[in-house]
Every structure is written in structure tokens, then in C-alpha cells.
Design a protein around this nucleic acid. Structure first.
Length: 213
DNA sequence: AAAACGGGGGC
DNA sequence: GCCCCAGTTTT
């Protein structure tokens, strides 16, 4: 795929994947732009199915609406609230720690730069960029396994690591399309451009595919 | 570079 | 029963 094709391809995917079936963090952000909620939701969604994350987030936000609410809870109480998600012990510990850092260091607010976000426990490039994009409306490209796989399968880039993919995409893709990439390629990757057996016969953008894989 | 964290859902 | 899931941290 050529870089000039990207806007057209995203336009086609946008028609194919309207907002209602977008991934959970996107839905949270549609409903409520609060960076704190986006951060919590993004952290809980790590290696966990969207539908499950969605249920847990809704329950969690009934009790916890701010870092102040969060630090009032013990690690044990947080575990009980988020229990069904995977890695719940690790995530509870990270959430507690994040709450403390937000209060002590950032005046109860979520920081809005990549550098500061990456210092928070459990926050890597994917979660950090998600918070920038969905929580602060800042230009950022969220590269997960889907995005990484798809753009390489398209032959749009040839990269080894997600971070390398992120840098390359920032060069190739116009800034106003960055936030579309964040959810369109995931929706596409979950339903059609699957890891093992992609459904090429159903693919709406097959004629643009580089067929590297 | 590889292992470990982890419950839920699909097959 | 076995395998996978919008990753991150530790070895």
C-alpha cells in the first residue's frame, strides 16, 4: 500500500465500522472525556476483552470518580471492584500507586505529556498514547498488536517493534487521521484482518493490500 | 529476548 | 482441556 492510499482506505473502514462497535476505550471517551477515566479504562483493558472491560469500568466508576476516591480504597477493595479483568492483583496495585502519584505530584490531575504518563506504573506507550488521544484530544498514534500487524501486512511499513511502527506512521499519516487509526484498525483487526486467518474475501480494502503476509 | 502476570470466553 | 485477548514489567 502507498501512503497516498491511506486516507481513502480509512474512509472506507469508517463506513464499515461506525462508532457503535468501536473498542471500549473509544466508547468511554465518547461518553466522557475525563482523562482520569480514560486512564483507568485503558489500564484495565490491557490483555482483556473489550466487553468484560466495559462491564468492570461501569461498576468501577460508580464508586471511583477521581484520584481522591481511588486512594481512599485499600488495594484489597480495588481488587474486589476490578476482579473479573485479568492481572487484577497487578492492576489494583498499579491503580493505587497511580492515585497516590496523581495526588502528590500532579495536584490530582492526569499529566498530559507522553514523558510524564510513561512514568506511571503499568503505563506503557500504548496506554499513554491512548490517554493523550482520547483523554486530551492530542495528536497521538496508538500502536497495539493489531495496528502493528495490519500496517505491516499492508506493506505500508516494514517494522519490527510497535515503537518503530509508531514513529513510521507519524511520518507517513497526516495528523488529522491519527485518531481514526486508533480505533478503526483495531475494529478491522478484530473482525476481518485477523492474526492467523484473515478473511480476505470479506475485506473492503483488499485491493489496497500489499499482501506482505 | 523471553518469561510472567490471569480470569473469562470460544471452540 | 487448550488457546487467545487494544501490554507492561521483570529476569
Amino acid at each position: 500500500m502507498k501512503r497516498e492510499d491511506v486516507p481513502k482506505v480509512l474512509e472506507i473502514l469508517k463506513r464499515e465500522f461506525p462508532k457503535w462497535n468501536a473498542p471500549v476505550v473509544h466508547m468511554i471517551a465518547q461518553h466522557d472525556k475525563d482523562p482520569f477515566r480514560v486512564l483507568v479504562c485503558a489500564l484495565l483493558s490491557t490483555r482483556t476483552k473489550d466487553e468484560l472491560t466495559w462491564r468492570v469500568c461501569k461498576r468501577f466508576f460508580e464508586k471511583v470518580k477521581s484520584p481522591e476516591d481511588l486512594i481512599k480504597l485499600s488495594e484489597k477493595e480495588i481488587e474486589e471492584l476490578i476482579y473479573p479483568v485479568g492481572f487484577y492483583r497487578v492492576k489494583a496495585k498499579q491503580l493505587k500507586e497511580i492515585g497516590k502519584i496523581l495526588i502528590e505530584k500532579y495536584g490530582g490531575k492526569v499529566p498530559d505529556t507522553l514523558e510524564e504518563l510513561l512514568k506511571l506504573p503499568g503505563v506503557g506507550r500504548k496506554v499513554a498514547n491512548l490517554v493523550l488521544s482520547k483523554g486530551f484530544n492530542k495528536p497521538a498514534i496508538v500502536v497495539d498488536v493489531h495496528v502493528h500487524r495490519i500496517v505491516n501486512r499492508w506493506c505500508l511499513v516494514k517494522t519490527k517493534t510497535p515503537e518503530e511502527t509508531e514513529r513510521k506512521l507519524m511520518e507517513i499519516v497526516p495528523k488529522e487521521l491519527w485518531s481514526d487509526i486508533n480505533y478503526l484498525l483495531v475494529a478491522f483487526g478484530q473482525t476481518i484482518c485477523l492474526p492467523r486467518k484473515p478473511k480476505c474475501e470479506e475485506c473492503p480494502v483488499e485491493k489496497y493490500c500489499g499482501k506482505c503476509l
